[in-house]
Amino acid sequence: MPLFWRIFLLNAVVLIAATALLLGPVTVSTPVLLTEASVLAAGLAAMLVANGVLLRVALAPLQRLGRAMTATDLLRPGARAAPGGHGEVAELITVFNAMVDRLEAERAASAARALSAQEAERHRIAQELHDEIGQTLTAVLLELRRVADHAPPVVREELSDVQETTRSSLDEIRRIARRLRPGVLEELGLARALKALAAEFNGPGLTVRHRAGADLPPLGQEIELVLYRVAQEALTNAARHSGARTVELSLRRVAGGVELRVRDDGRGLGGAAEGAGQRGMRERALLAGADLALGATPSGGTEVRLTVPVGPAGTAAPPLPPGTAR
């Protein structure tokens, strides 16, 4: 039973008992006069209504706090319970908001450490793929070519097929290494890295259109990596799960920041639960102090929009403290 009704019913029991005593042995006159009974009944009704209204007003901050607790999501920071009430109620709301601040700060710090470790591990795996497996397959390819030059025609044809398989495997390993460690991002910058990423996803069944503004401000390596990874995850989802035929990838400067938008014409999110990829995008957005919006397009597809705030000097603004709205 809600707290409101428990307090209300307890008060009602006390008031009804008091009225019964007045109507019984403790009364002004015996037997009870009709006018006295009417006055007492009207007084009781008025007290119950007043009691209910006052309790509703007094407990309204607790109801707002309950709704805030239900809606709190550490991957969507900023929402707080509206302060209100008096005494213990106001103190409870203040303590809850402070607790959410601490949780968001700890979540952001732990996510930063996890993503940093993830990027370091990706860098290590990409390096090993390139240096170890890539070089081994290159040596195998050269050896196959040398053997094919001295082999009989029938065997040479079979070795040619093996060479093609090895060359395809080498290209696939290089492609995986590029995805794990976007060297083009470090060498050529974000705009060209996104263009190369769009070209990588272009294929027979999917067309990726890329646009980048000419007035993009400097963002810093960490912010650029966040934008690149979010674009990579959005394109991966569009290619694997949406059934889209066309995807638009754009990066432009907007009022107060830079906006990355990935829009497809696929089947949309529907009622599917949020997956690990989407949660990963939200965690990366937290690191950049950015706003991430996932929604449907007018045509029924999916749109991913990441807005990174930019400071007045043209550099990416640092993440705000937990609970602060931009």
Rank of each mutant, 00 (worst) to 15 (best):
A196H: 11
E283T: 12
A293D: 14
L54H: 14
P152M: 10
A18P: 02
T246Y: 09
L3M: 13
A81F: 00
E187V: 09
A177E: 03
R124T: 15
A317D: 03
E119A: 15
R326E: 04
L294I: 08
A239Y: 11
R326W: 09
P25K: 00
P153A: 15
G266C: 06
A46W: 07
L75A: 12
A196S: 06
P319M: 04
Q163L: 10
V208N: 06
L190V: 05
R263H: 07
I223R: 13
G220N: 03
R124A: 15
T136Q: 11
T207D: 05
R64H: 05
P218L: 00
N97L: 02
G205E: 15
A126F: 05
A108N: 08
G66N: 13
A239E: 06
G270M: 10
I133V: 14
G52F: 05
L75Q: 11
T324P: 01
G277Q: 08
V262F: 05
A105T: 09
G275K: 06
R146E: 07
L59N: 09
V57T: 09
D161P: 15
I223K: 04
V26D: 05
A148V: 10
L159F: 06
L54K: 10
L216Q: 03
V310P: 11
V230Q: 08
N51K: 00
R146Y: 00
E106A: 13
P204R: 15
P318L: 00
P83H: 00
H150P: 14
P182D: 03
V254T: 11
A199L: 03
L23T: 01
A112D: 11
T236P: 05
V57S: 11
R282N: 05
L190N: 04
